[in-house]
Design a protein around this nucleic acid. Sequence first.
DNA 1: CTTGCTCATTAGAATCATTCTTATTTGATA
DNA 2: TATCAAATAAGAATGATTCTAATGAGCAAG
Lengths: 141, 141
Amino acid sequence: MSETSTATPESLTQTLTGSGLRATPQRELVFNILFEKRDHPTADEVFTRAKAEMPTISLATVYNCLETLVQCRVVRAVNFERGPTRYCPNQRPHAHFHDEQTGSTHDIDLPPGLLDHVKTILPTGYEANSVEIIFRGKTQS
Amino acid sequence: MSETSTATPESLTQTLTGSGLRATPQRELVFNILFEKRDHPTADEVFTRAKAEMPTISLATVYNCLETLVQCRVVRAVNFERGPTRYCPNQRPHAHFHDEQTGSTHDIDLPPGLLDHVKTILPTGYEANSVEIIFRGKTQS
DNA sequence: CTTGCTCATTAGAATCATTCTTATTTGATA
DNA sequence: TATCAAATAAGAATGATTCTAATGAGCAAG
Ligand SMILES: [Mn+2]
Ligand SMILES: [Mn+2]
Ligand SMILES: [Zn+2]
Ligand SMILES: [Zn+2]
């Protein structure tokens, strides 16, 4: 229930209604898709997976749901290169590792204090409210 | 002349010819525009500034030149949000600070060793060849 | 219950950054 | 100077996203 914990399908309804929004089947489905397989899919990939469950859902709705979930802060939009935005349901402070061989993206948990340490490099007058860290490279195996 | 120094308009010709590419007026102009005002402009903004100097230059050529300069590693392409790619001639290791009030982007020099320190958070099996750090917030002034 | 509203979804059009295609120009080299 | 690959230019095409307009669903009086 802390600010940085990851939402669950169960807590989603509360988050939405608490924000004055409706917990629709489409919003729940889109969130469940992100929650089940944390592979940072694009909107289009979410759409493909969603259609398997709900054949009538539209791409526009997937975009709308993703935007709503981002506004509610239960999902993060990730952009580390030109190309489609990717979506991540992990709300813990974490970095992203982009495997250049496979194109896949992995979450890297951050040790407590790291973000604060990194913020100390900012000159006086710069006030950061978020820090994003992106690694690029390859993974063994 | 070290690997991480920033290219100058003077060194550009060498870099290009050393890569088997021609030092064309368009490439030099595009680089000079980035070098003179380090405000991380988009391709379109570079195009506007370039036309003032060289009215016949085309947007396609600006894109081509920028891509060439990125390939030669004298310019960095920066993407920290959906939206047009921005270009940066600073080749020193640095982070980006995105001022959410003004939309402007500032370079933040990194103390030596910071990137290596950040890399120590990677689990075994992850080999990063680059680390990108993006701050978002506001600046005093 | 029904009506009335507001929110949400849908389909398709529009937008915008970027890439591609094709023709033309340039410039180094033989 | 002729050759010919590299580079530029103009416009078309692409692809992700956003917008528009119409339809549908759920709640809140009446
Ligand atoms: Mn997408
Ligand atoms: Mn651009
Ligand atoms: Zn993530
Ligand atoms: Zn920069």
